[in-house]
Structures are given as C-alpha cells and as structure tokens.
Amino acid sequence: MTFGLACCAIEMMATGASRFDLARFGAEVFRPSPRQCDVMIVAGTISKKMEPAVKTLYDQMPEPKWVIAMGNCAISGGPFVFEGQYGIVEGADKFLPVDVYIPGCPPRPEALIEGILELEEKVTGFRRWPRVEAK
C-alpha cells in the first residue's frame, strides 16, 4: 500500500513509472486499500494529526504484513526535527514495527528497489538480484 504522504511519494511514483519500472520485480501492484496489501511503504513525514490514521490503516491490513520506512522523515523525523517541535512524529518506528529502512531525502528510485529486494530477502531468505559491492 502506498502511503505517500509527501515528497517521497513522487519518487515512489517515479519508481513505478517506465524508467525504473518496479513491475520487473513483481511489486507493481499499488493498491490504496489496506485490506488487500502485504506491505505498507510509509513515504513521507508523519504528523501528529495523521498518526491515528496511519495506525488505523496498519491495523486494517491482514497478517502477514511488513512495513518499509522510506525516507528520512519516516525513519526519524528527517529535517523537521528541531528543538521545540510540536507537529511531527519522529519516525514511523515510534508506533509501527518497521522491517526495512531506506534512507535518503528523498531516496533515489534505485534505493527503493534495493529496499524492496531487501524485504524480499528478509521474507523469503532468497535474494534474486546480486548485491552490488562497492569497490
């Protein structure tokens, strides 16, 4: 389920579009309804006003379910954390169990693909695409 809240949503759309093509990995089916989904990609900043809605959507997903936190805001609040901040939740893992973290602001589409492959490895134990080693 795409939980596209802010800027990361655009990179998620770009990953699904023709250049980066998430359909190659079998992950193209984006369904806005939580009842039909296995994975929730939290893409964007979670504000305190939005938090109950995110929790509700997570609860509505049937088991087994996983969560990918995409972008710095979903990992730890991102660039919007400052002293005396009143409006955002500092990271999706404050109230959701997160499986994969994808850093970046916003992360490149390649990073999102890598995150989905990581999740696949975590779920099935088998990684279908060779890992790129830095030289």
């Binding site: 305190k48 006003k49 005396g84 009143y86």
Partner: peptide
C-alpha cells in the same frame, strides 16, 4: 492546520512544546 483539539499557539515567542 493544527489538530482539532489543539489549544496551543505555536508561533508565539514564549511557546514551549
């Protein structure tokens, strides 16, 4: 812009979260 039950006014200079 704030939650419906908000009773604080953030941009005042003496606002503490």
């Amino acid at each position: 812009l704030l939650p419906e039950d908000a009773d604080f006014h953030p941009l005042l200079k003496d606002f503490k979260a």
